[in-house]
Design a protein around this nucleic acid. Structure first.
Length: 271
DNA sequence: CGGGGCTCCTGTGCGC
DNA sequence: TGCGCACAGGAGCCCC
């Protein structure tokens, strides 16, 4: 569900309310989402710990925590249906944390696909070690992007979804970036011309930055740190608009399946 | 390396 | 109303 802009919105929301709070109580209603370490150890490490940092890498949200002089990282991947909502206790949550200010941090996850971990070194997580560049960061440059794209034989849309290639892009923003750049999602990456790759590079950054500005896209499950929806939904050009007319040329938007994922595009605007 | 299929889950919406 | 199927902001795994 949440892609980079959604996770970033949650991060910013939580940063305002979570820093320096202590976790005083943990209620685990479904241990399945806790992947590392054991449930017992997970509870032990988090209880009475203090939140000292909150950051994001790709779609991964990380809380830096401190417990009796030791530093740990609470890494949260929301996958398809995860939510982290600050406020009142939610009895439907998979895991809830009671904070020292008597508020609750609820981890909700309808489909139970999310992953919670507590580790000593977040940079040592395999997802992090394999993860591609942060698309809004300085290390993401047009020239290295162009070089890497032009070497790949797979479909450009699959490549954008590959977290080891670029971090944080998911199904919505892959579709929107490709629409803005006028590129058909089925194109082989190595057939893109230089000006198309440049356009794609710019579009990725533009779409992600805009989506952050509008606090993400709420199709159904996504909620920000306070349980509110994002406002980017009505700024989407193609995602979820099958059969509706293209906002640029009025041609009906098509939906196909690529690598098992719904893929939306305008045949006329994207070639 | 690339692609397809399947899997982990729960829930909703649609056609018949 | 009921049933079965498709589909859902993700990603890892196996196999060809």
């Amino acid at each position: 569900m949440p892609e980079l802009p959604e996770v970033e919105t949650i991060r910013k929301d939580l940063k305002k309310v979570l820093l320096n709070e202590k976790i005083n109580e943990i209620v685990v209603n479904n241990p399945k989402v806790i992947k590392e370490p054991s449930l017992k150890k997970f509870n032990q490490l988090l209880i009475k710990s203090r939140v000292i940092d909150i950051f994001r890498r790709g779609k991964l949200l990380v809380l830096g925590i401190e417990k009796s002089g030791e530093k740990y990282f609470f890494a949260i991947h929301l996958r398809m249906s995860g939510q982290i909502i600050y406020g009142q206790k939610n009895i439907k949550s998979r895991v809830s944390f009671k904070l020292s200010n008597n508020k609750w941090l609820n981890y909700n996850d309808q489909r139970l696909l999310g992953v919670l971990r507590v580790v000593r070194d977040w940079q040592n997580l395999s997802v992090i070690k394999k993860m591609g560049p942060e698309p809004l960061g300085k290390e993401f440059t047009q020239s290295e992007f162009k070089q890497r794209v032009s070497k790949r034989k797979g479909k450009i849309k699959s490549l954008l979804l590959d977290q080891t290639f670029v971090a944080g892009i998911g199904n919505i923003y892959a579709a929107e970036s490709l629409f803005l750049s006028g590129i058909n999602p089925q194109r082989r990456a190595d057939t893109l011309r230089d000006n198309e790759i440049k356009k794609l590079f710019d579009s990725i950054r533009k779409v992600l930055a805009e989506a952050i500005k509008y606090r993400g896209t709420s199709f159904s499950m996504y909620r920000d740190g306070h349980g509110e929806g994002g406002k980017f939904l009505n700024r989407l050009f193609v995602y979820g608009r099958k059969g509706k007319s293209c906002l640029k040329c009025k041609t009906p938007v098509r939906r196909i399946v690529l690598a098992g994922r719904g893929t939306y595009f305008c045949e006329k605007c994207q070639s």
